[in-house]
Design a protein around this nucleic acid. Sequence first.
RNA 1: GGCGGGGUAGCUCAGUUGGUUAGAGCUGCGGAUUCAUAAUCCGUGUGUCGGCGGUUCAAGUCCGCCCCUCGCUACCA
Length: 692
Amino acid sequence: MRRILVTSALPYANGQIHLGHLVETIQTDIWVRFQKLKGHECLYFCADDTHGTPVMIRARQEGISPETLVERIHAEHLSDFQGFHIGFDNYYTTNSPENRLLSEEVYLNNRQAGNIRVSTVRQAYCEWDQMFLPDRFIRGNCPTCGAEDQYGDACEVCSGSHSPLDLKNPRCSLCGDTPVERDSEHYFFRLTAFETFLKEWIRSGAVQPEMANKLDEWFEAGLQDWDISRDGPYFGFEIPDAPGKYFYVWLDAPIGYMASCWEWCKRHGRDFDAIWRRDDLMEVYHFIGKDILYFHTLFWPATLRGAGFRTPTAVYTHGFLTVNGQKMSKSRGTFITARRYLELLDPEYLRYYYAAKLTARVDDLDLNLDDFILRVNSDLVGKVVNIASRSAGFIHKRFAGRLAENYPHDDGLHDQFVAAGEEIAAHYDAREFSKAMRAIMNLADLANRFVEAKAPWNLAKDPAKSDELRDTCTVAINLFRILMIYLQPVLPQLAEKCRDFLQLPPFGWESRLQPLYGQTIREFAHMMARVDPKKVESLVETVAPVVPPAFAAKPVVAKPATPAAAPVASPSVVTPSPAPPLGEPLDIETFGQVDLRVAKILAAEPVDGADKLLRLTLDVGELGHKTVFAGIRAAYAPETLPGRLTVLVANLKPRKMRFGVSEGMVLAAGSGGDQLFLLTPDLGAAPGMRIR
RNA sequence: GGCGGGGUAGCUCAGUUGGUUAGAGCUGCGGAUUCAUAAUCCGUGUGUCGGCGGUUCAAGUCCGCCCCUCGCUACCA
């Protein structure tokens, strides 16, 4: 028996679980369930990643403590994952006593070993917010190309990277003030001391070949020591003997894997040290996305090594999720949260679809929604479940639900199915799930062909062939049972229904060896509904058409209310919207297709169940009244709007939304959130006038 | 700009160290069947293997250039 510890990357406690996260947790969960089915010990740990500036700022915005925020998000995340049958042995949090102790130990051991140094770093500091600003919280003009309103670290226009201190006209994205430069002592982890070790570790097969190549690039460029401290205020753990200094969130995040394990060990009477302080008892695997390769294959093994802990056996990296071939996007409606999916569709559809496309490589995975519907319906309902569905009826109608008394002659089909288990297991173990699914579906085809050849519906017409009829159905049900064992890691719920149907104890991988006969089975009940295309459609319905799509995902943060003497935030102190690249040239005819009208706002009211929307009733002159949903609630109080004029896109196709039909959109400038500014025509314009 | 990954049938993807007429599943189309959730079974693919050029007896598979796309570009994550 193997002893295996597995993790998925910790989701950040600022934001909802979406279908991208689920590529990883489903991949990991399938692998874990497979190992358990094989009879190995396999422990699966995860947690919320809770620390850092974004969580701190968001809590401040919501007027609650970071701890409260983090607890709420933890409950949401856990329930989302459970909805997808993710079988964690423990889903913990990095904001825990175990994580604090372990982080301190990792740090102190490294300090003891001479792996920590202190240097002075010059950084942007906001005097208003009284904090050092992370690069992402500074905006200004790109020092290279001059593009306006770029992040502190990189320019989206010329895609160059730069230091936030080089930005022209820098501003704090929290309050809009100009930051000052200030020195601060920072603690660094000497990553450079671990180059030899890391190269050996990587060569030991710890990462996939293509990731090893990527790491070689980084080695060639030269490793740099790692800044592991941040100045307060910072939501995180204070560094021992360094008042006001906190561990950078990425230092304690992966330690959260260990903390989750430790907390579980305490509840189950297991020896934490035997798992993490020696490497000969358990295998340790991390499943991650390629965006966090750096942390998991350089910093993480090095900090563990430097602190005297074991290092991971391997880190398995997967690619990103695309939806219909494109990056997930809120404006296209393809930024689909786990919760939204669960409101509409069976989680096992997605588990199967992902499994059907996952490989051991780092390729991106495309969720093509049309393909999704066809694939799931065809494979799962049409092929697999159908085998049981078409056989069980006879067993009940003719034999009172009792299978043949002995396992019938089947031309070696059962043996063939059992033998295929070797190859399928090898695919699962190698994380080649798509190959495993292909192999299983080939078996399902064989089973259907067997039924076809025996034609039980003809046997049923001849009373003399009663035994043959029962034999045929018994074989078919046996084949179905083996398929469900093979599919259990992917479809735990369906496998459960199958066990109930066949009145069987829990499956093990080897239970496929023993055929089923001489017993009664339950009446067949539907096990899985077909995918409803309408539900898939509503999955991608967009919710807030007015927010300019390109900016919807940008952090928009309100000015903090804390400093007492602060001036009231005025509209002149704003975070200017980023300057997006110029759009494609447009001829005037195309532009002319857009029917812009002056509209008078007659009424504006909040929409129940939507926190960003206002329902506007507009007077558009001879076009009559129109109802428009606008995502401007954060920027405008409803009572301030009636009576004012604005601009309506009048011939926009009506959009069915959860709350009603939106018959156009009003135009606004700005980056979204509370940074939105409605357009107003000059004096003299009247409702209904065409704008051109 | 530099580096790297992709670009193969309508869709999703396989294609080993270059070698017979480039494959699978799904869809579509034709037929069969009716036990089954209009499921199943049989039959059916003339694709410029992104483009151009080169090496070779032979290239999707090697080399060069170009196009499209995604990503990385170090104290950002």
